[in-house]
Design a protein around this nucleic acid. Structure first.
Lengths: 381, 381
DNA sequence: GTATTTTGTTTAGCGTCGGCACAAAGACAG
DNA sequence: CTGTCTTTGTGCCGACGCTAAACAAAATAC
């Protein structure tokens, strides 16, 4: 169902490998649920003979998922339609109480406001947090950037706030922000069609990873997988890391590491990530900046090579500052990864920049949409 | 279906979550296929009331899978029944031609001989090789220990040899030996019930890994995943590795590394693996040996911690020399892994020795059994 | 204007599975 | 010993999801 836009019933038959009858039934059903709409006037395909087909498209006025993201500087809420299109966005809120209960209540209130304004039906709500999320309980294990207590029961609180506000659908879902961005890239971004998709991204501080296998997030047995920040990428003498080791990917390739390597003093006005990205984009003719980019690419490449040896992905998507690094010098990064991974030459992995601006939001919505994609029947009514 | 031995129809109903009717139908069907047999006399369950149930057990005289393993010193062939029981074994052959075609022909001949002798029906044939196996083509990418050409089309040759010998069933399957051992441990050994199972093992030289997710082998997008041998575990000054780096798990924790660390000169009489294992088992009161064990455990632990951070398995099985290491001092290994992994204290991972003697063989057979487990109907006839 | 091609819908049929009733075989109470 | 209860195994029916095949629709090709 995540194959581009506006297919026809005929495309569905071949894409899903079912008969025309089944594809037609599915289409009728989805239309009855107001999830899709069917062109009244058939689309005359030029150069093709035979009966022209009706295009099926996501109903822009259909139900939505409530998506929210909490980050270091505040939170953000939006309504996301089927297919990952953001329908409405609440103004970013920069007021961040240290109490998760209070934050999530405010998030839900913003979402409820959006739903009231637009009059949309809500199929569920997803929340992205900048922390490892334990499975199956949904506790935020290391919400360092939020000043929340470790182990905060985010999923439970999220669910309670939602029911309190009367937002129903298929309930509340929570996940790590990078995991959800990876899911979104797989469904609607640069990861479409990948079988084993690896995503690596910087936040404002630190580095995170995510893995999408056969279209499903792989979070490990307890939700703690892809903690890629502590791969050693600077064996000889790296900066000390809070994990106790030295030269971790986390402290060697994050925005602060880049600013330091470029000899810039980080200012307090905007986020470190923003400063670092601006520097890469504006000052590649500066010798110090170019050298810093090369150093970080070499370290990142070493880390990616280690991951390639273990995971053997068929695509890698880079986000945050890493996205700017690969865009600045893709050849160098490809070269390092190929040289340092065992199957570098034979199995060169495509490494591409992320394409979605609000991947975590879209991914959070995707969680809420999932039950409906799995079984559209149960939503009848 | 891999839940211990001799369940009853009633157990199937609860275990598979189906009705008694369906469980009964499945049992009848499997019996008709001679895959299982049903106790004539019902098993009186002591202390239980109600009608006693008939035990269902794997038919020891039923069809078998042909399983074979090629290794550095020769090859081995066996017939394996449903449930991983080895029914018959051919005498180990130590004659190893350098030509894969010739070796596999000899392997198939040994297997055909076994089938003739026992008169069993063959449901398929699986082959384990000590090399990464490319997917989906099935080429052996680094058969270093076999003196085969890299990229040898093992799967094609195996299939051709089988059809030539008239061994039918569901065809030929090939896989990496450690991958298959991991699959076998998950189905019938120390890995039962694990959701995310990581296996790490030494062969005679080098270190390999495998991952079983939700009961299925994860081999990555091209079959090249879990090349764990080149994790850095000796940052300061490790031995040089053929991969170009230093201090890799491969050269720091394999049998030769252990013998060197213990100050022993490896002799030519038996394999390095055998010498190393004998040393661990017999001479733990020797100071040099004990120190060597501790050094290797520390390095192995560092490597495992890195894998835990990325994969978050819920169980780790160690094979080869690593099995002896964990048996010699489990506390030390657990401690290192917990200290060096991010979620060490909260998410301590069980690390257990492998339990199967011929895991690769059983796993190879498992590949051949898989189509029948997936759909027993199609074998009617 | 007719034939052909492609798409969409209707109808019949098949296979799977759950629900239910019934039979079987023992335990337990009197 | 007998009747009741509990658990297991089996046969039957219907709901459901899908395929196959026939039919209808709407364009192009000649």
């Amino acid at each position: 169902m995540h194959t581009g836009r506006a297919p026809t019933r005929a495309v569905l038959t071949s894409e899903l490998g079912v008969t025309r009858a089944t594809a037609g039934a599915v289409a009728t059903e989805l239309e009855a649920l107001r999830l899709i709409k069917v062109d009244q006037r058939p689309h005359a395909a030029a150069g093709h003979q035979g009966r022209p087909s009706h295009r099926l498209s996501v109903n822009p006025d259909g139900p939505v998922a409530l998506a929210a993201q909490v980050h270091a500087d505040g939170f953000r809420a939006a309504l996301v339609g089927l297919g990952g299109r953001i329908v409405a966005t609440a103004p970013d809120c920069m007021d961040v109480p240290a109490d998760p209960q209070a934050v999530l209540a405010a998030v839900v209130e913003a979402g409820a406001q959006l739903l009231r304004e637009t009059g949309r039906r809500c199929v569920g709500a997803g929340l992205a947090v900048p922390s490892a999320v334990a499975e199956p309980g949904g506790e935020a294990l290391n919400p360092l950037h939020l000043a929340w207590p470790a182990g905060a029961e985010v999923r439970r609180i999220w669910g309670e706030c939602l029911t309190e506000a009367g937002i129903g659908g298929y309930g509340g879902f929570t996940g790590n922000d990078i995991n959800l961005a990876a899911l979104a890239e797989h469904r609607h971004g640069a990861g479409q069609g990948a079988k084993d998709l690896l995503c690596v991204a910087t936040g404002h501080r630190g580095v995170g990873g995510a893995l999408v296998l056969d279209g499903r997030l792989h979070t490990g047995s307890a939700g703690l997988a892809l903690e890629v920040g502590h791969l050693t990428v600077c064996p000889d003498e790296g900066a000390p890391c809070h994990c106790g080791s030295r030269g971790c990917l986390d402290v060697e390739t994050d925005p602060l590491a880049f600013l330091t390597a470029a000899g810039r003093e980080p200012g307090p006005e905007v986020s470190l990530l923003q400063q670092a990205r601006d520097l890469v984009r504006s000052s590649m003719d500066d010798e110090a900046v170019r050298t810093a980019v090369e150093v970080l690419i070499d370290r990142l490449g070493l880390g990616l090579a280690g991951l390639v040896n273990i995971l053997n992905p068929d695509r890698i998507i880079l986000g945050g500052l890493h996205r700017d690094l690969v865009e600045a010098d893709p050849e160098r990064l490809h070269g390092v990864v190929a040289r340092r991974s065992l199957w570098g030459r034979s199995g060169a992995v495509p490494i591409v920049p992320s394409t979605l601006d609000h991947g975590s939001l879209v991914g959070a919505a995707e969680l809420a949409w999932q039950p409906i994609l799995d079984d559209p029947l149960r939503l009848v009514g």
